[in-house]
């Protein structure tokens, strides 16, 4: 006589043993970080997409749910593209995108202008000194980000260092408006992200064989021409990598425009923050984020990734 309860138990046990066998070493090792990334990176992104397609509500949480069961057995899926439509028609958001691209572009260009000579100079110092010079570039990067932004508030604000100095020696009478404009936001971004530009540039320039430049000189090339026809093309991978490394974080930057840029420098990062904390409009904040990712961040990452693989396969 077999006991059905006993049978069921046996089945459960053999099922558990089967799972336990599958959860051996490798699979467990894969499962742990994969679960983490799935739960805390992929899921949030999907939720963000869902909320960007919902409608704003005055409730908690302040949005409508996309998937709903109507009278118990009918599934209703509602998608609202209105949030995206607003982004492309409302002037405030369009201007926000333009401001962000402008500030990030300016900062990237300035980083390149400051970073290239520095990287070149470091690459031309005696070899034993190079590591020290490189470390001096990263060292400020390890101090708190906020402190580096604060340093510029101290220098540029109306009661700050530069204005105090100029007023003390009667060069100016009223403080100059150095802060609270997009110029200050650019300086803050340049200061914060300059190491990101110098390192890839240095890596590219260091590999250039100096004999090439000397050969150009010997053949009667002017220093300017030698620079633009030898150094610049050969350091192109560094230029592109550095520019991407500065531009991508600069475009979504919130803290620097908020603290240095003043009220009128509304970048996308600040708009997302304001929509969320100020207007409590979660769907708008979510759709702004999605647009920022799809139209700005993804293309650069894809192009840069493509360039890198192409460059690697060529060498």
């Amino acid at each position: 006589m077999t006991n059905p309860m006993y049978r069921a138990e046996e089945k459960v046990i053999s099922w558990l043993v089967g799972i336990a066998k599958k959860i051996s070493g490798h699979n467990l090792l894969i499962a742990i970080p994969f679960t983490w990334i799935f739960l805390f990176f992929i899921c949030p992104c999907l939720i963000l997409i869902e909320i960007s397609l919902s409608e704003s509500l005055i409730a908690s949480p302040p949005y409508t749910s996309m998937v709903e069961w109507l009278s118990g057995h009918m599934l209703q899926i509602r998608m609202n593209l209105g949030n995206y439509l607003v982004l492309f028609t409302d002037e405030m958001y369009i201007r926000g995108f333009i401001t962000s691209v402008f500030i990030a572009g300016m900062s990237t260009a300035c980083c390149l202008l400051i970073g290239f000579p520095m990287a070149y100079a470091i690459a031309r110092t005696p070899e034993r000194l190079r590591n020290i010079f490189l470390m001096l570039v990263v060292l400020p990067f390890w101090t708190s980000f906020l402190i580096r932004v604060y340093a510029w508030i101290m220098l540029l604000s109306p009661g700050g260092f530069i204005n105090s100095l100029l007023m003390k020696y009667n060069i100016i009478e009223t403080p100059l408006q150095l802060m609270n404009n997009s110029f200050a936001a650019c300086i803050g971004i340049i200061y914060a992200y300059l190491p990101f530009m110098i390192f890839p540039l240095y890596n590219a320039i260091e590999k250039i064989d100096y004999a090439l430049i000397e050969a150009a000189y010997d053949l009667g090339c002017s220093p300017m021409k030698a620079f633009f026809s030898i150094v610049v093309p050969l350091s192109a991978p560094g230029i592109f990598a550095g520019s991407a490394l500065v531009f991508v974080p600069a475009i979504g930057e919130f803290v620097i425009p908020e603290l240095l840029g003043g009220a009128q420098t509304l970048t996308i990062g600040r708009l997302v923050w304001n929509e969320f904390f100020g207007n409590m409009s979660w769907p708008t904040a979510a759709s702004l984020s999605i647009v920022l990712l799809i139209f700005v961040v993804f293309p650069i990452v894809l192009v840069q990734g493509h360039r890198e693989t192409k460059f690697l396969s060529r060498n």
């Binding site: 949030p44 963000l48 979504g252 919130f254 990062g269 997302v272 969320f276 979510a286 984020s289 920022l292």
Partner: peptide, 11 residues
């Protein structure tokens, strides 16, 4: 972008 990551995790 940090703002996007913060927003999505909060959601």
């Amino acid at each position: 972008p940090e703002v996007v990551m913060g927003l999505s995790l909060l959601m």
